[in-house]
Simulated scan of single mutants.
Amino acid sequence: MRQAEEAGTWGRRISSAGPPIHQERARQTRQLILSAAAQEFATNGFRSTSLVHVAQRAGITKGAIYHHFTNKENLAASVVEEHYALWPALVAETQDKGMNSLETIVALLERVATVFRDDPLVQASARLQIERSTIGIPLPTPFVGWTELLTELFGAAQRDGYLRPDCSPQAAARVIVAAFFGIQHISDTLHERRDILERWDEVKRLVFPGICALGVRIP
């Protein structure tokens, strides 16, 4: 999809080409730092995370972190960018399964819910976005990429006859984005996202009948 290919929408683009051999160790160290930082930010938040703790978790020196990241703020922003870089491949994999447009929307959001439940990088990014006013540098704007992508997918669903004739794809996208990210935040706050798939299923069963045309089976 066009939206999934735009670095400005989803965050920093990750090249599909591997780094030169002499850069491989640096790449591995950077990923190790990002993974350790994600776990720290997800558990403790921005203010309570220190670079010392990140270094200890990663099993490296604090100086090694500074070789890759200017400061804690830059590291936090990089975690968020890394999170957004996950989505284009996940979107493409879902679209390649040969499902119809409505099935694609439902399957995609279920996969995203699973990623939010299981991936510390995504969990850290979600927490950092909530704390963005305390970080001090700009972070990628949340929700825009998902709203644009779902607008396009709901547009396809409308053309395929799955949406009510009076249902705007843009409005459907805004409602689903609000509902989805609302449940992920509530699920995180109350149950550490253990019940996010159940909460998403409730949204699907209650909201999609108001979006879809009469007689359309909700996947």
Rank of each mutant, 00 (worst) to 15 (best):
R111Y: 06
E93V: 07
L108C: 06
T151L: 04
T134G: 04
L121H: 12
A107M: 06
G98N: 08
E110M: 09
L153R: 13
G155W: 09
L86W: 08
M99H: 12
V91D: 13
N100Q: 03
V144Y: 06
S78G: 04
L109S: 06
S125Q: 02
M99K: 10
T147F: 02
V91R: 10
S78K: 12
L108R: 09
F116I: 05
E110Q: 14
V122K: 02
N100P: 07
E110K: 15
D118P: 00
I105A: 00
L128Q: 03
G155M: 08
N100T: 07
M99I: 05
E131H: 10
V115L: 11
L149W: 14
R111Q: 15
Q123V: 05
E81P: 07
E93M: 01
T151S: 14
V79R: 12
D119M: 00
S78N: 12
P138R: 11
W146S: 15
T141Q: 14
V106F: 04
V112S: 01
L149T: 11
L90H: 13
D118F: 02
S133M: 02
A107C: 05
L128T: 09
P120E: 04
Q95T: 09
A92W: 05
A89S: 14
V115H: 07
V122E: 12
F154N: 11
F154C: 05
P88Y: 02
D118K: 11
T134K: 13
S101A: 15
G98P: 07
D119N: 15
L102Y: 11
V91Y: 14
F143Y: 15
I105T: 06
E82Q: 14
L121I: 15
T114W: 09
V80C: 12
T141C: 08
D119E: 07
S101K: 02
G155T: 14
T104S: 13
S125V: 04
E148H: 10
V80R: 12
G98K: 05
V122F: 01
F116Q: 13
L153K: 10
A76R: 01
F143R: 15
L149S: 08
I135V: 06
I105S: 00
A89N: 12
E82P: 01
V122C: 13
A92F: 10
T147L: 05
V115T: 14
V79K: 01
W87A: 08
V115D: 09
D119L: 00
H83W: 12
L90N: 05
A89I: 09
S78F: 02
Y84M: 09
T141N: 11
T114K: 06
I137W: 13
W87R: 06
A85E: 03
W87C: 03
D118G: 01
P142S: 12
L149K: 04
A77N: 10
I135A: 00
L86I: 09
L121F: 04
